[in-house]
Design a protein around this nucleic acid. Structure first.
Lengths: 156, 156
DNA sequence: ACGTATTAACTTGCATACAATTAAATTGTG
DNA sequence: CACAATTTAATTGTATGCAAGTTAATACGT
């Protein structure tokens, strides 16, 4: 915090100063924190996110799910095939636009929502912050995320 | 934000309310934002983090690097072997305690630091926030992360 | 000293992420 | 209408993350 430290070029190359590392290691911790609770449902964390998206609205295209989660078909296609094998979702070509694949829920997938409702509460406790703090932090992160994405797009 | 919405059980299962998803998708965006700059050095983002740790201090054990990055040897061992193949680091058994493997830098790995110094500046711009905002956000994230890790440990 | 517990790194298996490419369907344009 | 450009998924290849199990070395308790 002194005036000179900001001038040292190597002070920027320190792990403890990296916002990116705070984001990276927190994201890894999130996945590990979810794992024991999601294992009871037989889901991984990204699979859980896809289910959340589908519980909000059924019959979305792979593209639509990918836009919401910022994931491409290279990640989603195999993940969705696994959810289909698990009997939670359905995949069918859109008859109107055959480029698209519509993802729906099976009865089992729809029913899982009930068991999943306890998870956000438990995870919220694990975060150890108030709802207000969580909301602020979420908003700040989404701003940073969208700035990053814009900078990637600018470079193209 | 009204009084009744908090009572609706499904309001907790919405992606747009998830702090965890903000963390998750921002972390993915961080990796994508770093990728073009790190590609010039032939590094991935986790490899870059390992190099940063080694630029701070040479000859650390795999365990020491793992503690700093919150990664285990299952992730680090193959990553370190790739850095070794790339000619950036050295791996040798500690003669005093043969369980440990000491990771050092080659001349090439040490020299790469110079080229890497421009990266935090460019990424800092891409985040689109002030140094002060970044610092606050980092601190809040690390608190959340440590809370999450503590809750995982408690469950054991 | 001796047997047990612990520790460090490695290995295996599985599931992401993502860049790059491909294939098929649709859109846009002259 | 013809045909190039675009869009959507799927595929391929590489590199993580991490749980679980293995191996070798060291620390510990009696």
């Amino acid at each position: 915090m002194n005036a000179t430290s900001g001038n040292a070029p190597d002070s920027l190359l320190k792990l403890e100063n990296f916002l990116c590392f705070a984001i990276y290691s927190t994201a890894n911790a999130v996945t590990r924190a979810y794992q024991p609770r999601l294992a009871a449902l037989g889901l991984t964390y990204p699979q859980y996110l896809v289910m959340v998206v589908l519980w909000e609205r059924e019959n979305q295209t792979v593209k639509s799910i990918g836009d919401k989660l910022s994931l491409d078909s290279g990640t989603l296609t195999p993940l969705l095939k696994r959810l289909e094998s698990a009997g939670l979702i359905t995949r069918r070509r859109d008859t109107v636009d055959e480029r698209q694949v519509l993802i729906g829920l099976t009865d089992e997938g729809r029913a899982m929502r009930k068991s999943a409702e306890a998870i956000p509460i438990a995870i919220g406790r694990a975060f150890g912050c108030t709802l207000g703090e969580a909301k602020d932090l979420r908003a700040e992160l989404l701003t940073v995320r969208d700035n990053l994405i814009a900078s990637i797009d600018d470079a193209k």
